[in-house]
Write a protein that binds this DNA or RNA. Sequence first.
DNA 1: AACCTGAGCAACCGCAATTGG
DNA 2: GCCAATTGCGGTTGCTCAGGT
Length: 308
Amino acid sequence: MGHHSCCNQQKVKRGLWSPEEDEKLIRYITTYGYGCWSEVPEKAGLQRCGKSCRLRWINYLRPDIRRGRFTPEEEKLIINLHEIVGNRWAHIASHLPGRTDNEIKNYWNSWIKKKIHKPSKAAQTATPSGFDHVQPVFSTADQFDAILHHNLPKPSAADPIFPPPPCPLFMFDVSAGDSGSATGSSKEEFVQEVTTLTSDLWNPTHQQDQAMPPFLAFTACMESNYLPPLVDGMGGMVPCCVADDEEASRHPFEKQELSEWVDSRQYSSPLIWDQVAGTSLGGEALPTAPSTMDAMITSFSSSLSRIN
DNA sequence: AACCTGAGCAACCGCAATTGG
DNA sequence: GCCAATTGCGGTTGCTCAGGT
């Protein structure tokens, strides 16, 4: 009868969860935690399989879940992350605190359906709330402002020294090319590296659900025309800052302290890279590959041409 | 009022990865 | 190192409900 290996017991209930079942699960998890999901149904008095309990808790009952419509910032982040990592919903969800992979997947699928059903109309009548017009490569400083909640001066061609971001916590060097790198690095891989790196550095506890802010800022800086210096010289720094003060307060260091720390090292790229990499990877510096740099510079150069 | 249709979403399924004995 | 159990993930299903006919 049972369709699944974990659900072969007799009397396993399926389908929608009742409020009573939810209450039982919540009471059990909040009291005892969830060490082994396969033990949860019996101990919690539920006629469900452990897998179903886990899914219900993760996707619906856990207290830090965030419900309701996706904000424009979240929608945009999903679109951009999907461009980078594809259908890796759990990975995407790790950048949206409180959102589940299932929710994001559902959103994406319904969004895609719309897009498929009305391709021409969407292209012709794109609105600020519709994302058919959003390109994976970011374009405007307004988008940056919206994400970071800061008013930023736009860099100008007359001022080749670009102003620092409002909260320059980290600057990642992408110019210290390791030409000996054998790995076939791509832009995607690089972004993933940076994402992991910032997440680990940001969250000493390695809590995935808090991984978003640095990455948000990383992408936002790219889209805002905050170009890395020395872009024409085959290199530069990718600014990476926090989304807001609340996120900054989570960091073990004081914000001011960090700003000074970064300011003092802003252009000593190899040091920063090694230092940051060393902090999170046990002293083993991440390599940067020329192919990665090419992809990044192409992106930066197109941004540069927009403001010139 | 009855039926149809599609959007939204919760839950399930199967497989892969991980863990533990 | 092997194997079974468990967990995690992405694809898919199917239910509910609102809006249209």
